[in-house]
Design a protein around this nucleic acid. Structure first.
Lengths: 232, 232
DNA sequence: ATTATAATTATGTATAGACATATGAAATGG
DNA sequence: CCATTTCATATGTCTATACATAATTATAAT
């Protein structure tokens, strides 16, 4: 009885009961008050445990009704999106990026639509090749909205990567991300020293500040790349 | 002053200060005690707000030190992995799946290794084609470990999809998921009525019960498929 | 029978106070 | 000067109590 991080202990114990099938999906589990008696602790402590279990999708909780084991535990995968440089350096490789393109242009209609730009705002268009130990691993194609990024045209993106600059300089209020696959075009294949048509993993990301889109980016990964995450 | 879900309100207020740049990345924010004074509430309430901010990656908290705005806010994407049937039906389409293969076999060495099977356990190998309104959308290739799935050989997987059966019948203790892209083989292209070599989005998932792998699955999505998620 | 109202109840949240724990900084000793 | 110990402090957690809120159930009114 040295330390008693009760809420964690209770959490693990209850989780065990669910995993071991002592409490089956759909079952109503005892009320907080009863569990508090069982575990000799305050209801608040049980509450915290149950809240954690509900957060991880194992319980469905409703006032006046109680907590029941989720019948269809929708499973969540949480992906940590790192700055590419950090990811590379964590693998012990040397990071470098090359600015391959930079222009002040009107975005293609498709991009304008997605970024919710109805006026004819000229965006900063930037392409970067990210490399680990001189091997190209990601080709980044990005549109930046100068309206929400004052001074963006003056930044030297050879010294710092766009993503890193953004992460350090602007906070976004929301964002979305999507994953898909694409066949490499001739030009892209050259960048990766791969074959035309090779399947590449693509991440498209948009970040917003209120109603205004800050940036839209397409990350084309080298063929063979695979992104891992834990299921919770 | 009707309702005062204080911790949420405080959470949002503090989040605003970070997003608006009032507190910059790296800044030490006031201690819980001080914030409690400012917001006229108990320290526990502030604590809950700060904990939520830390959970979402906006704050780094350390005892004796305080809470500072994360300098390199690694961003998290939470993906909800739905049962395919539900996903299809939610889009208003008719779901159907076809069992294309079923065998009791030794898994390929690569799969055995990943599933941590050192003995010569024969697995249940099952392939399924998932369809929305009769259009094939996902080709599922799966290995199931009968050791942790007693009775698995008796289940009729034409009636219920494997994933759905698993979700309803076994709890896993941990799992991992990875995303990549693959070129369609000739056989796969036929299934999707697509071209050989078309890039397809692939999800590979493994779930574990303790040290034993329950199942390993590869979900090959139709070319053009894109998976969306919110950034938090 | 149907609808409106009140009572009941499990969870949700807030609070003050206490102790636990990690850790930076200061004091101490070699 | 460096290593060790002590101390101070912000966060982490627990408790008992109280009230809020949602949702079911019982009751009353139409």
């Amino acid at each position: 009885m040295t330390t008693r991080k009760s809420w964690q202990i209770i959490h693990d114990e209850l989780r065990g009961r669910i995993i071991d099938g002592i409490w089956q999906p759909g079952d109503l589990i005892p009320a907080e008050e009863q569990l508090a008696v069982e575990f000799q602790c305050a209801r608040a402590t049980v509450n915290r445990s149950l809240r954690a279990l509900a957060d991880s999708g194992l319980l469905d909780r409703r006032r006046r009704v109680g907590s029941r084991v989720a019948t269809e535990p929708s499973r969540y995968a949480t992906l940590k999106i790192d700055i590419i440089r950090l990811e590379v350096e964590q693998r012990g490789a040397k990071y470098r990026h090359v600015l391959t393109e930079r222009a002040q242009v009107l975005a293609p209609e498709r991009v304008q639509y997605r970024m919710n730009l109805n006026d004819g705002t000229e965006l900063l268009y930037i392409c970067n090749l990210h490399m680990a130990d001189e091997r190209p691993i990601i080709y980044e194609e990005r549109w930046l909205n100068p309206v929400v990024l004052p001074g963006i045209f003056d930044v030297n993106f050879s010294a710092i990567s766009v993503n890193e600059w953004l992460v350090r300089n602007v906070m976004f209020t929301r964002g979305d991300i999507s994953f898909c696959a694409a066949n490499l075009t001739e030009r892209e294949a050259q960048l990766f020293a791969a074959e035309v048509g090779d399947a590449a993993f693509v991440i498209e990301r948009m970040t917003w500040q209120g109603e205004q889109c800050i940036t839209s980016v397409r990350l084309l990964h080298e063929p063979g790349f695979s992104m891992r995450a834990e299921l919770i």
